[in-house]
Nucleic acid binder design. Structure first.
Length: 590
DNA sequence: CTGGGGATGGGGCCC
DNA sequence: CGGGCCCCATCCCCA
């Protein structure tokens, strides 16, 4: 017995889910566009994808091989079996591009379709594009370190170590063929732009034109190499869709809303539709082995050889989606900073704000003065980072408002949400009007909120950590005093920076998960963790870090240096933080 | 099973 | 903007 339209129906459902971002567990980055999809579907479509999604939840495609508009078609094809070539471009050109992309992505059926189509239309054979070049068959045209198409896997985190070679990865060859440098994701502004000026066509990346992918240069000039093993993105985090407002309407809609337009029955006017008739036999098997062994590390690190996968499992999930709400409230950190974050904000507002900065139109990137980080705290938060956009700017009162995009669970039609008070409005105008009613004072965290940690805690915490940094600053040399917490600073800029920590607003959203940050640098750093950029490699064991400091810290593992000594018991520690936690043991009542 | 220590990741913030 | 350092959280190992 067979249900007639079972497959079709299933695919339809999946495509609809993709449109909503429902259960999407992978993000594909193409230039500055993000597409969400389902690993299973991708893996079933192509061996290449299969190897990519095996370990990664965030995949960067080679922008020389595919651009956002093409990838959108590709994705639509994968989910529908139909090829919708947009009518607005030379169809031949389009099919050529599609063929390139299909070949690159090893979507053989699609490639065949394109070739057929090109042949039919008398199109000349793709220049230098054999039918199955494969992802790595293409050489770089120049020395640019482009945002890479690299399958980022654990391997990329840890350069081959003796043990590494013991368990080959399915896509080993592929990965190995790419230098580490190529694994940099964040195409620096230059690279990104130089590399694909033309392919940007589809993106009306208004405010962020000229900005690197994701609006950031994450590539971080780096030392030897960097792996791009991406951290996991929460499967149901719906927030990643629209990295940049400008591209939301185009690219994103492509991956989301538009996909519904390609559904059977949907209006496909203006598009030429080709359907895949052949039973989609994606070349099965391949050297793909199901569970790629985790990266190996030696000795001590061996214990953590599961680092990457683990990160994937725990790191982001708990970290980026649950933690923000819980975090920071507990211990009084020395300036009460985290308290302002976790407790104050998390509890105050709807937790599912999204990150599409409604103010982005104005270009001011500070335009996106979003508030608390609770934004991505639940998987339902929608939208994409507003971010990318601008370059530092003034703070506008209306900045902390942004628009729910893509997924509006709680606010219904009121997509424009005022962060401080959580009210939703149907239009930006109304929201703006509303925002005016908030005074600046309201933006400050009220101490009675109970989350503001006082100085006593600071000192206490400080005492624990030995002779480190001063928590009380001599005001003589620090004339600029914070009106909220009385801390003082040497220069007004630092004071201003500090004062922001008291604000509810968090102007810098992560384009991937939507989390908000008070400082751009922090957000950039955070983005690196999404993208798995770990520029700092340990020469001893190959372990990689996102920060230089971590590497320095780590090096003590090898050197055996234990500079931190407990004054109470004489215990020595390689890291100060461990000494602190140790001291806590001494001082804790039990 | 539990607690302590080693090690690492991420965020906040000052310089 | 990046470096550096602080903090918290967490994992893993081991006694």
């Amino acid at each position: 017995m067979e249900l007639p339209n079972h497959a079709k129906h299933l695919l339809l459902q999946l495509n609809q889910q993709r449109a909503k971002g429902f259960l999407c567990d992978v993000i594909i980055v193409v230039e500055n566009a993000l597409f969400r999809a389902h690993k299973n579907i991708l893996a079933a479509s192509s061996i290449y994808f299969k190897s990519l999604v095996l370990h990664d939840n965030l995949i960067n495609l080679d922008t020389e091989m595919v651009n956002p508009s093409v990838f959108r078609q590709v994705l639509d094809f994968i989910y529908t079996g139909k090829l919708l070539s947009s009518s607005d471009q030379s169809s031949e050109q389009n099919f050529s591009a599609l063929l390139t992309a299909a070949s690159y992505l090893q979507l053989h059926d699609l490639a065949a379709l394109c070739r057929k189509k090109l042949k039919r239309s008398g199109g000349k054979p793709l220049p230098g594009k054999p039918s199955t070049p494969g992802p790595h068959s293409r050489l770089r045209l120049n020395n640019q370190r482009l945002s890479s198409s690299t399958p980022a896997g654990p391997k990329n985190h840890y350069p081959p170590t003796p043990s590494d070679t013991d368990h080959p990865q399915p896509d080993e060859g592929l990965r190995d063929k790419l230098s580490d440098d190529e694994m940099f994701v964040g195409s620096s502004g230059k690279n990104g732009n130089a590399g694909n000026g033309s392919s940007n066509g589809n993106l009306s990346s208004g405010g962020s034109a000229g900005e690197p992918d994701l609006g950031l240069d994450l590539s971080k000039k780096s030392p030897p190499s960097a792996g791009i093993a991406t951290d996991a993105l929460s499967p149901n985090s719906n927030s990643q869709e629209s990295p940049q407002s400008a591209s939301v309407s185009t690219t994103n809609s492509a991956s989301l809303d538009d996909s519904s337009a390609t559904l059977p029955g949907a209006d496909t006017c203006g598009s030429e539709t080709m359907e895949l008739n052949t039973s989609s036999k994606t070349s099965e098997e391949a050297p793909n082995q199901p569970d790629g062994p985790p990266p190996q590390k030696k000795s001590r690190q061996g214990a953590r050889k599961n680092e990457w996968p683990k990160r994937e499992a725990s790191g982001l999930k708990s970290e980026d989606h649950e933690k923000p709400l819980v975090n920071g409230v507990i211990m009084g950190p020395k300036d009460g900073r985290s308290s302002g974050v976790g407790g104050g904000s998390g509890s105050s507002f709807a937790s599912d704000q999204s990150f599409q900065c409604k103010d982005e139109e104005e270009g001011g990137e500070n335009g996106q003065d979003h508030s608390d980080e609770s934004g991505q705290s639940d998987g339902e938060s929608a939208g994409g980072g507003g971010g990318g956009g601008g370059k530092g700017g003034g703070t506008q009162s209306a900045n902390y408002v942004y628009r729910q995009e893509g997924f509006e669970p709680a606010f219904g039609d009121n997509l424009y949400v005022c962060i401080p008070c959580g009210k939703g409005f149907p239009s930006s105008e109304q929201l703006n009007a509303h925002v005016e009613t908030h005074t600046e004072d309201e933006l400050y965290i009220k101490e009675e909120g109970g989350t503001f940690v006082k100085e006593e805690d600071e000192e206490e915490a400080e005492d624990l950590s030995a002779p480190v940094g001063p928590s009380n600053f001599g005001s003589e040399t620090r004339p600029f005093k914070c009106t909220v917490c009385s801390k003082s600073y040497k220069d007004p800029a630092t004071l201003r920076q500090h004062e922001k920590s008291h604000w509810l607003t968090r102007p810098f959203p992560c384009n991937i998960c939507g989390k908000m940050f008070t400082q751009r640098g922090t957000m950039t750093r955070h983005m690196r963790s999404h993208l798995g950029l770990k520029p700092f490699a340990c020469e001893e064991c190959g372990m990689r870090f996102t920060r230089q400091y971590r590497l320095t810290e780590h090096m003590r593992v090898h050197s055996g240096e234990k500079p931190y000594e407990c004054q109470l018991c004489g215990g020595k520690f390689t890291q100060q933080r461990n000494l602190i936690s140790h001291l806590r043991m001494h001082t804790s009542p039990s």
